[in-house]
Structures are given as C-alpha cells and as structure tokens.
Design a protein around this nucleic acid. Structure first.
Length: 1135
RNA sequence: AGUCCCGUAGCUCAGCUGGUUAGAGCGCUACACUGAUAAUGUAGAGGUCCGCAGUUCAAGUCUGCGCGGGACUACCA
C-alpha cells in the first residue's frame, strides 16, 4: 500500500529547517508568495536597514521574527506584501573600522590617503558581513527580498536624500548655527543627541573635582552688598564646584540662582590654613562645615588641625550677588573680544543646591547651559575664545582635545588622560595638576574624587567633550505640534511607548543637528560663498550638473565630474557614472550670482537621516516609481527595538511629517531587549551572549522563534533561556509531531485520503469531532484577531494550548480506539477527516511564527493531493475566514463537564488505588437542574470509556439521598443589599438541609438581619450537592461524583484480561511487530487466568490481532509476566 | 529629577469590564498509565498577589503614597 502521509522515526527540527529552506530556495517560494498576490491589496512593510558592518546577534532574531510574522500572516490573508531588504552603509562605525584596519587616524584622510581611496575602503568594508547577515536571514526563516536591497551609498539613494533636504531647504527649515555639542575628539566628530543617548553611553567615572575659590573684587558693588560683614583686609572668595577642572581656564562667569539663599562664612582654608571668607548657598553649608565647630572663636584656631571654626557673617539671596566681579581664576588668556564683560556673577534658572555650592562655574565654550546664560546676560558674557595663527577665534582646547599653545605649560596636553594612546598618558592628568596648582595658590576650597555618570562616545568608548561647533540644523521645533498630532494617528505596540516615551520625546524635541564632520556619508548639498552671504542647495544630480556647466564656463573648474551623466536617464548604467560622495563633490566649485566661487559646506549629514529617508530613497522617489510610491506609502507596519524610539522611529516620523505632512507608518511594534536568563544585558564581554547561528543549528529556527514570541510579550524584555527553547521543542513541537505521526500511521494503514469535495457532513459527526472542530474555529478566530492586533504572543499561546490540551491530550487520546479498531468505517472516516482538518489548519495558523515546521507539516498532509487542490507551500495558501457556523459553545460546556467528571473519577480511583485498567460497574452524578441532566447525558459515553466504568446514573433530585450546599451569588446580591452582604453570606452559610429544602420549595426565603428584611430568591443562590451518604464521593466546583467500587468476579476477570492484553501489546512491540501483524498466541495456564481468558476471549483476540490462542501447561519459551496475583508466561509469533 | 514599563508559587508567565477556594507550564515528591512514548494522567508540597493608606458591601484587579527592578529623557556645574 502506498503511503500517502510520510512517516518519520523521530523529530529533528533543525533538520526540518534545513530541508524546508532548501525546498523554498529550489522552488522560489518566497518570490511566489509575492507574485501570486499580484493585483491583491498591498500591505506595506518597511525594513529598517541593519548595518552589515557588524555581526548579527540573537536579538536580531527576535526583532526579525516579529517583522516576519506579520508579513507572512498578511500574505496568508491574501495581501501582497513586498518587503525590500536594505543596508545602512554610512556612518562612523564603518569609518572607525576602516581607520583601524588601515592604521590611520582622521587627520591622515586627505593627506596620506586620498578621500577617494578612503571612501573606496569604506564601501568595501561596509558590506563585509553581508554574507553572514544573509545567511542568518535565511536560516532563521526571515523572508525579505535580498536580491534587490536598497543600499544607502548608491547614487540613486543619495539623490533622493538630497531631494528631501532640498524640500526642507525650500520650506526654510534648515539653518546654520553654532552650538555647544557633544563632541568626540577621538572620532573627530560631533555626536547627535541620539548617539549620546545610546544605551550604555552614560557610564560612571571617577573624576577629580574641585571647589574653586574665585577671589571677589572689592569694588563699589561689593561694599554695597556685603557692607559691615567684610573688612578691608579680608580675603573673600566665591565657591564654585566643577567636575571638569580643565574648563576652569575657560571660566568667564559665575552663575547663581536669584532666589537661592546665600551666606558668607568666616573660616580658614583647609590646605593653606589662611583666614578667609567664602560665599556659598545657605543650605549647603552643612555639607562642608562641621556643626560642632560653628561659632568657635576664630582666634583659637591653631592653624593646623582639621577642626576649622566657622561663623556666618552675612546672609542674602542670589539677586544680591549679581554683577559682583571676581578675579580670573587661571589667567592664561582673555576672551578676544569684550573681555571687560567677563568674570561677573550672573543668574540662571538651572542652578540648584543639590550638590556643589549653589554657585556654578560657567565656561560658555564648553557647556550648553553655560553658553545660554552667558548669551542672555546683559551685557553678554563673552566666551573664552582666543585667536589662533590665522586670526580665527578658537577655544582653549583644540579639536583633538588638547590645550592650545595659549595654555602655557599645559599647551599641547590632552585635557583628559583617556585621550592618550595606551601607555602614553602622564601620571597626573591636567585635572589633577590644576587641582594642585589651585591648592598651592589658596584657590581650592576642597579637592576630591567623585563618581558620576558621564557620556561616552558610543564608538570610541572615550568620554565626550562639550565643544562649540558650526552645524547645520533642521528646524524641528517649528513643527513640533504637527509632529505630535501625527503621532496620535499611529498605532503603537505597546501603546505606552507611543504615547509616553515617543510622545514626550516629540513634545520636547530639539532641532535636529545634521552635521557630521566625517568623510563616508551623504554630503550636505549646500554650496556657499566664502563669506556665507549666498548659498545654493541642490536636490538632484541634474541641477548640480547644470551648475557645474556654468562653473566650467566661468573657469572656476577644469574638469566636469558628471560629464557623462545623462539627465533623465534612469538606467543603472547612467547612474553608475556618478558618485556623490565627498571625494567628488568637494572638488566642485560653483559660481555665485556675483561670479564668486562657491564651495560646499564641508559637513556630511547624520546617517540617521539616511535611514529615515528610506521610504522615498528605496524607490528613488520622486525621480522614479511615483505610482509605486503612492501605493506603498505610508507603511502599514514597521518593527524595531525600543531603542529605536529616538532613532529610526524618530527620523522616519520627522522626515515624513516635515516634508510630506504625513505619518511614515501606521502600525509600529517596538520590541524590548533580549537579556540573558538572569535578566542581565547580553554582551560579548561578559560571555553571556547567545550565538544566533549555534542556537538555530541546535534547536532549529522554529522553536527559537516560537519561544521568543510566546515566552513574553515582544515589548517586555525577554529573559532568554536555552532551556525554555528545549521546553517549547518538547512540549509544543513534540506534541504536534506526535499527533501528526499518529495520524499518519493509521491513515496510511487505512488508506485514508483527504478529499475536500467529499467530506462527511460535520453535523453528522460524533460529538467529540464537532467539539474539536468548534474549538478549532474558535482558535482560528482568536489567532487571526491577535495577529491583526499585533499581539503575536497571544496568538502563539492560544495555538499551544489548543494543540497540547485540546487536540492531543483530549481529542486524540479519547479517539484512539476509533483509529485502531477494525476496518475502515464511516466513523473512522469522520475521525480522520476531523483530525486532518485540525492539523491542516494548525499548519496554516502557526506558519507565521514557525514557518519551517508549518510548511513541513503542510506538505506531509498535502503532498498526495492532486494538482490544483494544493499549494507548493503553506505560505502560498489563503487562510480565509473562520467558519463561525461550526462554533458551538454548548459543546464546549459539555466537554468541560466531561473533562471534569473524568478527572474526578481518576482522582477517586487513585484514592482507593484502583487502576484504570480495572473496570468498575457504576458511577453516579447528582444533577438538580434539567440542563445539567441533559448535559451529563450527552457526554456519558465519553466519560465512561475514558474512566473505564460501565454505567452512569444521574441522580435527579431525590430528597434525603443527597446532602446539599448553598452559596450566595455575590454578583447578584451585592448590588441589591450592599452593606448587608456580609451578614447575608454568614446567614446563608449556616443554612441546614431543611432551610435549603424550604428555599427550593418556595423559591424564596425570608431573613431578618440587623432589623432589615431580606427576601432571598432562589436565583440569588447556587445550590449544589455535596455528599451521597454511603458512597465514595468527591465534590468539585459544585459537581459531585460517586463511584461504586465493589468488584464482582466478572469485573475482576475483565481487569485481568485487560492486563493480559497490555502485556501482549508490549511484547508485540518489543518483538518489533507492525501494528497490523497478526499473531499466534500461547499462554501458560495459571490460577484464575483461564476463566478470565475464556470470558474475554473475543476482546483479547481482537485487541491483539490474535489468530489462534492456546493455553498450555508448560510453556518453555516466552516471556514471564505477573500482575495482580497472577504469574504466567506468554509467547507469540507472527502468522 | 522627569516619563514609561514591570513586581502574582523555586523559575517563566496568565488573571477580561472589581464578585469570595488566585491559575497554567516547568521544576520537585509520590503513584499510575503507556499499540502517540524525548509523551501522558492523578495527587502532594509550594502564594501576607512588593508595602501602606484610600474608594467599595466586595480589591491581585481601581486611586494615592512609598519600596524594589528595568528602559528612556534631561542634567550632571
């Protein structure tokens, strides 16, 4: 007989993944899953481009599973789901990698290596790991079109980015500014706020901190403010704290809070022991002065010890201190302009008295707040900018992070020891040296080590500097409201990320700093005249080419970089003649309206702009694909990690909002982190990172995906535990595999063949079939709803529950006999059809999450079907709607009852140690309500066969036999009686059998509680039975079961027969017989065995497929078996 | 400091619009079953549902205040 349904020896999920993957590749299943939906409504997904410059981790499997699930599901629903892969190719990580490889630094670029060669190296490096990524993509079963990915360094992509910038320019949303920015001297670039806020960039560091003493200048204002508190020869200092002593030479102001209370304290310097008076915030006094020493006579101080006396000699508020002046602390240099306005006390809102002294050291060149308050003061406080050799104003620290020559003995030294190459850092950092110097000069009030968190460059790992840089900005602030409004149209999963995290972020959004002073990226398409009075921006190669033509005519340029480019020709070959990177465009000198040369603004744009531009740039919009773009914008769905909230999610949203006044995506899933099993972050350093390839190879992609999706909601962090995958493998996939194997085994024996057109009528099938089909349709509804609501966890868990509990451990278990017995029959046919349908539907429903196994299952089920009635893959099938007409909730109630009754009988058997193989005569179930009676009648056969009992009697209400119990229905009574509820419950609890009888007879019961009349209705309570005197009884959830455990001879013999059958079956199996083999059986005689066999001969022989059964006295061969009190031997052979 | 998430059995997690014995799986113990067997059934042990206060007849569930864990944002002088 031909086997229609493949049978397997064991489940090998990893093998299945590989085998199915090959099948997909050989048959172009992915391509067909898209082409077969041509003309159907499209569902648009945008792939967030990974950078192929680094290796993928296990968290990528998580993120990509989520993406894949919804794309596959929508395909099943009939949508056409195009998904183009993409690569993020620009940016600092690539550059730094290349520098390291070539052994160069940023300074060498353009000198020892040409920009062109450097960019070429970057281009090569960036795609280095594409193979690894593609490999993972395939092995994990992520379907995305990798043959034609968008690549951000391609001319077409870059041209669209230029076009977008031009749109912003035309809307007057771009401007050049000068701001204090996070700057990484080692990387040689400013960092965007997203970069500074990358997870892990803030780190605890120990710095030398100084409370410096700024000597007050004794002028008119000074006398006016302090009056009698100060004497002519007093030394008075303002105390200000800094964690960055290297900024002290750049100090140009002190900032106080107007309303903060300040005091002047008369005391001694702890290092020089000189007498002095210091000013600081009043409520920080306790932090620096010991209470015991307060108001001790100054004259008693010995000038050495630590018990320094102190006395408050003046009190006031910040406003009193404004415009006081002080001597420059470290006079290395003066601001090149308006130096007379420096070294004053000014006010600022941000001053607090939480730490420090309540007076803030202000260095406008190295602090964003500092620059702001300095600018706002009247007159403005100048920043410490000095003139370099070219007469250009520069700060006292250069772009490498070194002090300039203006800094005397410190000139040329790095301001932080971390910036030195390994082993070259001096023992004392400049911070420490400055501290020593200040101590010696009586300008340090206190020096100490301090641990605080400080941002680090995410790539170089070195601390960042805040540094004044020229920059181009996108004016986001202006359209903040609109962006917030658009965000409300987006369906966020989870909601809180959108409303809370992302929403708050938008509301506080700052202008987007686009500038990056690097080489490998998309150049700003802005050309300026020397003095910056005229600027031009280009939104296409064509425009730029025209401008070049003009420049050449004017003699500003010799050669034409786009000589052979043909405007309007969209061929790849044409675009291959263009390169828009710095090595080319920096050579372009254009002509201003006055004939002056114009050069390009030297910065590149933030790479985040590249990725945020992908909806447009992947299609080379608007130069090509206009119609296609219309149908694919905005995205229906995107997904990335929650860490992208301020990354890709933000840039997509901002560009869409500012340029198109639209959302870029309608639904977004932001998934949480993948942590190790102890809840710690995975990192290569700690060695707790799981390798995605190893994991997939070992377990197969499906269990990994299934585990990740079902273990926790995607947006909760996942505690990734390999044992959890093992559990999924055993419990879910193992069970489903067993169910299929069971089906295949018997379907092949019986020659069952699925035929969609010749089905038995579902309505005619047995209760249990209709039940499981009803459950199946409920499952289908649940799963489809869950997927449509972007709740994959719910969908997965529902399937798991169905397969394990309902299909395998209830349906198949109860129906086993239907498959075993005898020849093919209608009932068998029905059982096969039912089980087939369940497996088939499950294969479809699970395919988004477990694409390989689902397809394997589907193909096993369908390979024998005639052409035209099957698809090549489950992923090409159409799911269709759930068949609501098959759902019958009452069936479900009945089945629940059956399960409960069975479990109760098992429990009773267990209590009396009567094994299930021993048949029992009778069980009784009391049922008071007619519905319950009906319910039990409908499932009694099921229960009886499950628990091996011969009859079930339903005890209708026979007073005296049953002991009843009554329980108030809180939901009904609560609202009616409110506070009396407790008393009612107490009274009802005390009802005896007579009270219950009375309530049941009359339908109501009168109670007087706390003087209040209570009329208790029968509907307000639940009456149940609790006991049947004289029987073995159990009660659970209001259902009672009684079991007759007396064993007649007949029952005993039947039990023995069953034991024997069991032993024979084991022997059959051990002898390696097929389940269909027929046997000749010989059994040695034993006490009590013969009658048992003769009474049950028919049963024994059919069960074991025995042709001849012989009882002998002396069986020499054969297996010894013993059970109950019987010892015998059995022997069988195949006939 | 602010915003958001989380806190239920040893572990991983359910618990809908408040309703009176708080659930599942894994793990553990014991017993059974075993022609699906890398399964399965039954029973047992294991919970002040983070704490406190409030609203309510009734709170794991709603509100407030704390505590603990996490993510993010700002600042970190």
């Amino acid at each position: 007989m031909a086997r229609k349904y493949p049978e397997y020896k064991q489940l090998n999920l990893s093998g299945i993944s590989q085998e199915i993957l090959k099948y997909w590749q050989d048959n172009n299943i992915f391509e067909e899953s898209i082409s077969s939906r041509e003309g159907k409504p499209s569902f648009t997904f945008y792939e967030g481009p990974p950078s192929a410059n680094g290796l993928p981790g296990i968290h990528h499997v998580m993120a990509r599973s989520i993406k894949d699930i919804f794309c596959r599901f929508k395909t099943l629903e009939g949508y056409q789901v195009k998904r183009k892969a993409g690569w993020d190719t620009h940016g600092l990580p690539v550059e730094l990698g290349v520098e390291k490889e070539l052994g160069i630094t940023k300074e060498d670029i353009g000198k020892s290596i040409s920009v062109e060669a450097y960019n070429e190296a970057c281009k090569k490096a960036v795609m280095r790991y594409t193979d690894v990524w593609n490999d993972l993509t395939e092995k994990m079963g992520y379907w995305v079109d990798m043959d034609d990915p968008y690549i951000t360094y391609k001319p077409k992509y870059m041209e669209t980015v230029w076009w977008l910038l031009k749109q912003l320019w035309d809307k007057d949303l771009m401007y050049k500014g000068y701001t204090i920015q996070p700057y990484s001297p080692k990387a040689g670039t400013g960092l965007s706020s997203h970069e500074v806020n990358m997870p892990g960039s803030y780190r605890d560091v120990t710095d030398t901190t100084i409370i410096a003493q700024f000597p007050a200048i004794k002028n008119e204002a000074y006398s006016k403010t302090f009056g009698d508190a100060v004497k002519a020869d007093d030394k008075v200092y303002f105390l200000a704290w800094t964690t960055t002593p290297w900024t002290l030479p750049s100090n140009t102001a002190l900032t106080v809070g107007k309303k903060i209370e300040y005091v002047m304290v008369e005391t001694f310097n702890m290092y020089t022991h000189e007498a002095q008076k210091v000013v600081l915030a009043k409520n920080l006094v306790g932090k620096y002065f010991k209470a015991e020493q307060k108001d001790q006579p100054q004259a008693d101080y010995d000038g050495k010890g630590k018990n320094i006396p102190w006395t408050i000699v003046w009190e006031g508020v910040g406003a009193d201190l404004l415009e006081l002046r002080y001597e420059q602390l470290l006079p290395y240099a003066l601001p090149y302009e308006n130096a007379e306005n420096a070294f004053r006390v000014i006010s600022g809102d941000f001053v607090t008295t939480e730490d420090g002294t309540g007076i803030v050291h202000t260095a406008p060149t190295f602090g964003a707040d500092d620059a702001k308050v300095a600018k706002e003061a009247t007159p403005p406080v100048p920043p410490m900018l000095v003139l370099d050799d070219n007469e250009n104003p520069v700060p006292l620290v250069d772009l490498q992070g070194k002090f300039t020559k203006h800094m005397g003995e410190y000139g040329g030294r790095y301001v932080k020891n971390e910036y030195y190459a390994d082993g070259e850092a001096p023992e004392k950092s400049v911070d420490v040296e400055i501290a020593i110097k200040l101590k010696e000069e009586n300008k340090a009030f206190k020096v100490e080590k301090y641990v605080h968190s400080y941002p680090h460059c995410w790539r170089t790992d070195k601390p960042i500097l805040y540094y004044p840089l020229d920059s181009w900005f996108i004016n986001v602030t202006q359209h903040k409201e609109r962006l917030v409004g658009l965000n409300k149209e987006i369906n966020w999963k989870p909601k809180s990320t959108g409303e809370g995290r992302f929403g708050n972020w938008l509301e506080n959004a700052n202008d987007w700093n686009l500038s990056r002073s690097r080489y490998w990226g998309i150049p700003l398409p802005i050309w300026s005249t020397e003095d910056g009075t005229e600027r031009k921006t280009f939104g296409s190669v064509e425009e730029l080419k025209a401008a070049c033509d003009e420049a050449i005519k004017a003699g500003l340029m010799d050669s034409h970089p786009f000589e052979s480019f043909e405007p309007g020709n969209m061929d790849e070959a044409n675009y291959d003649t263009v390169d828009l990177h710095r090595n080319v465009v920096d050579q372009i000198v254009l002509k201003s309206s006055a004939g002056e040369p114009m050069r390009r603004e030297s910065d590149l744009i933030d790479v985040w702009f590249d990725s945020g531009a992908m909806p447009y740039a992947q299609l080379h919009y608007p130069f090509e694909n206009k119609e296609k773009f219309e149908t694919q914008y905005p995205a229906d769905f995107i997904a990335e990690g929650v860490d992208q909230t301020r990354g890709w999610f933000y840039t997509l949203h901002t560009i869409a909002g500012l340029v198109f006044d639209s959302v870029a995506y309608k639904n977004v899933v932001s998934n949480g982190l993948v942590l190790d099993k102890n809840g710690h972050k995975m990192s290569k350093r700690l060695g707790n990172a799981a390798d995605p390839f190893e994991t997939i190879l070992k377990y197969g992609a499906d269990p990994v995906r299934w585990y990740m999706i079902t273990n926790a909601q995607p947006w909760d962090n996942l505690k990734f535990d390999l044992e959890g995958i093992g559990e999924v493998q055993r419990k879910f996939f193992g069970t489903l595999y067993n169910t299929y194997s069971f089906f295949a085994l018997y379907a092949n024996i019986d020659g069952f063949e699925w035929n969609a057109d010749q089905q038995t009528n579902v309505a005619d099938r047995p209760e249990i079939d209709r039940w499981v089909l009803s459950r199946l349709q409920v499952l289908k509804q649940n799963v489809m709803n869950s997927f449509n609501e972007y709740e994959p966890t719910r969908a997965g868990r529902a399937m798991q529950q169905f397969v394990d509990e309902e299909l395998s451990n209830w349906y198949v278990r109860l129906c086993r006999r239907r498959f075993w017995k005898g020849e093919m029959s209608t009932d068998k046919q029905m059982a096969y059809e039912t089980l087939y349908e369940c497996l088939f539907t499950v294969s479809q429903l699970m395919s988004p999450i477990a694409p390989f196994f689902a397809d394997w299952l589907y193909q096993n089920l369908s390979s024998h079907l005639p052409e035209g009635s099957k698809e090549k893959s489950v992923h090409l099938t159409y799911l269709g709607e759930a068949r609501a007409e098959l759902i019958d909730e009452r069936l479900n109630d009945r089945m629940k009852m059956a399960q409960q009754l069975s479990s109760m009988v098992f429990s009773l058997r267990k209590r009396e140690s009567i094994k299930v193989r021993q048949p029992l005569q009778k069980m009784m179930v009391p049922a008071l309500k007619p519905e319950t009676v009906e319910l039990i009648e409908s499932i009694q056969d099921l229960v009886l066969s499950e628990v091996n009992v011969k009859e079930l009697e339903i005890l209708k209400d026979v007073s005296g036999v049953l002991v009843k119990k009554v329980k108030p229905d809180f939901k009904k009574l609560g609202p009616k009686y409110g506070k009396l509820m407790k008393q009612i419950a107490g009274a009802v609890g005390k009802f005896d059998q007579n009270d219950i009888a009375k309530l049941e007879e009359q339908g109501h019961y009168h109670l007087t509680l706390e003087g209040q009349e209570v009329e208790l209705l029968i509907e307000d309570v639940e009456v149940s039975t609790e006991d049947i005197p004289g029987w073995l009884v159990m009660t659970e959830n209001g259902i009672t079961v009684a079991l007759d455990i007396t064993l007649s001879e007949e029952l005993k013999n039947e039990g023995i027969a069953r034991e024997l059958v069991n032993r024979i079956q084991n022997l059959r199996k051990d002898s390696g017989l097929e389940v269909t083999d027929r046997i000749a059986l010989r059994v040695q005689k034993a006490d009590g065995l013969e009658t048992a066999i003769s009474e049950n001969k028919g049963y024994i022989t059919t069960e074991t497929l025995t042709e001849t059964l012989e009882m002998t006295d002396n069986l020499t061969e054969g297996l010894e078996v013993s059970f109950d009190e019987i010892n015998t031997k059995i022997h069988l052979e195949k006939v």
